[in-house]
Amino acid sequence: VEIGTIIFSLGCFPSQADLLDFIAEVEEDHSGYVHLDRFLPAMTKVLLENKFPPIHEDVLLQAFEVLDKEQKGYLEPEELTMYMTQEGEPFTQEEVDEMLTAHADREDHRIYYKDILSQMTTDCGL
């Protein structure tokens, strides 16, 4: 989890499988620890090769539109939970809860993804 946090925060977007590969590469005999001496070269390589390129906002918007089959402009919380926990690289319950409490509309609990996208991209300071 910690390694994932570091890699993500460096602006990379690896998949969970990529992440496991990366950790396997640098981990010290399955100790659960990673030595900085091994991490740094591996990480530098990843960054230089731009292995896990960022996802463009437009692509994200398209992704949401794919899920929003009726083109309502929002997703019901149940829809989002279903997609996020059953498709792709499933979210844990904690991740879904956080996403819903933080980003669903206060009144109707829907997820207006366009607003969220613009709000979150500015919030990161990027």
């Binding site: 994200l60 398209q62 899920l67 997609y83 996020m84 498709e87 792709g88 979210f91």
Partner: peptide, 10 residues
């Protein structure tokens, strides 16, 4: 939808 979900999750 699989790929869309992956993108959003990442």
């Amino acid at each position: 939808s699989y790929y869309a979900a992956v993108l959003i999750q990442r």
